[in-house]
Each structure stands twice: as structure tokens, then as C-alpha cells.
Amino acid sequence: MPETVEIRRAADRALTATSWLTSRHSFSFGDHYDPDNTHHGLLLVNNEDIVEPAGGFDTHPHRDMEIVTWVLQGALAHQDSGGNRGVIYPGLAQRMSAGSGILHSEKNDSATEPVHFVQMWVIPDDTAISPSYQQHEIEDKLLTGAPATIASGIPGSNAAIGLHNRSAALHVSRLEPGDTIGLPSAPYLHLFVPRGRLTVEGLSAPEAEVSTGDAVRFTDTDGRQLAAKEQSEILIWEMHARLAG
């Protein structure tokens, strides 16, 4: 199958806005349903959230979902019915496996500063597994330049945290202007730019340039190159399967 590249611009995302939350959705989410935009590969949710000081999500349930949270700025306090507590901050990878069912809350840990994060969901290989939680701090030097694998279920991966999906991995990279990196080769790849500006090899202007809030969905990609035009941070989902249907 030939490679396809679909660019989704930041302004085209659905928006949920309340007094304490600004949430932008790369895929259908909550009240925002688009039958043509429900997932890419195995990735069901890619929400970019800003939670105001002292705000947050009250205790709510999840089931049969691998939920990965990556904080860009500020601190997010997590608490769940499994007895897990933690404060997530930039450079700390976190995964909650909802499995057979879990309750959790997520609150801004600051009374004065907003928290800005991206939350991503993929389904596990097996349903009704035991709920679990994992977090791991990653050294800044490992996040600079070549993509660091922060979460993966792919056998043989050297990841900071695990996923209960043998076909998915999340990579993160922080780039300085002029840096160039190669993307993984995979049947499905999702690139999200939470901040910065980059060019994608092989695309014509203006499509070649992606910036803050933009996403690129690749199928059957063979390691395209990215070049940073300014200081950037990117999230890359490598997926070797897709959701049925």
C-alpha cells in the first residue's frame, strides 16, 4: 500500500471550554462526534488540555483503556481507586491501565499556575486486565534530539513505562532550531506538535510546515525526516496495527 500523509491543523480540532478547562481534541471525544474522525491506527484520544489553577477532573471511571499523560508545563495531581497517588510534571512519563475498571481524579497541583498536558488513549490487547499505574522520570538529555521511547508494549522496546498493547509505542523528542530527526517506519504513525514549528520531508509548501497544535497522520511510512525551524517538542505514536472496523 502506498504511503499516505494527512495533515490535521490545530484550528480544525474540536474545542471543549469551561471556566477551568480548555481542551482541544484531535479525534472525536465526548459531545464532539465525527464518524470520519474516530481514531488513527490504535490511537483513540489525543487531547491537549489546559487546566486552570485549583481546577481539575473530579473522580470518574474508566475501563479497558491505556491512558498516557505527558505534561508540558505545570503539575498535575493524580489519585485513583487503586491507591495510586502522584504528581506529574514535565519529563515524567505516566500510564494508567484502566483494565477491569478504575476510578481516578486529575487536578491542577498549583493554586496559581495553569497545567498544560496532552492525554492519549489506546486500547489494551486484552480486556478486563487488572488495573495498574506506572510513572517514570526521564532525564532531559534523553529527550533531546533522537526520539526517546517513553511508553511501549512492542516486544524488545527499551521504554520508560510499559503498555498493554504489543503494537504501540510513544516517542518524545525536544528539538532545537536546525535539528533533524527521522521518524519510525510503521504501518500507522501519528505525529503531534504540542509546541514548535517543523518541516516534514517530501511535502510541498505550505503543507510541509507543521506547528503548534498540528498533527500528521501517516500510513505505511518509511522513516521520513523532520527538521525543526524553532524550539519544538513532538509526540510520535508508532503503531503496527489498527482498530477493527
Score class of each variant (00 low, 15 high):
N84Y: 01
V115Y: 06
R217F: 11
S167M: 00
A215F: 09
D109K: 10
T112L: 09
H32C: 07
H164R: 15
G156S: 03
H116W: 15
P2H: 14
D140F: 00
V193Q: 07
E6L: 04
T16F: 02
R63I: 15
P61G: 06
F57Q: 12
L235D: 11
I123C: 09
D126W: 01
D12N: 11
R174H: 13
Y133Q: 03
E139Y: 01
D109P: 00
L15Y: 07
M96E: 03
L43I: 13
L203K: 10
S28V: 03
T22F: 04
R197F: 00
A151I: 13
D109I: 04
Q135Y: 02
L183P: 14
I138Y: 04
L175N: 08
L198V: 12
S152E: 04
H136A: 13
E209L: 02
L198F: 04
T22D: 13
S19N: 15
G41K: 03
T112E: 11
A151T: 12
S105C: 04
E3R: 14
E6Q: 06
V45I: 15
R63C: 09
V200W: 05
H78S: 07
P206C: 10
V172T: 09
E6G: 00
A228E: 15
A146F: 01
M1T: 14
P147A: 09
T219E: 14
D80F: 01
P61F: 04
I67M: 12
P187N: 05
E207V: 15
G178S: 11
A244T: 09
S211R: 13
E238T: 04
E207P: 05
A77R: 15
G55W: 08
A128N: 08
I123A: 15
A75V: 02
L170Y: 10
A17W: 04
V71I: 07
I138T: 06
S152D: 07
I7Y: 06
E3I: 04
D109W: 09
H32L: 07
T127S: 00
I150P: 01
E209Y: 01
D125E: 11
F57N: 12
F218H: 01
A244F: 01
T219K: 13
L92E: 01
G83N: 03
R13Y: 06
G55V: 07
W70V: 14
L170M: 15
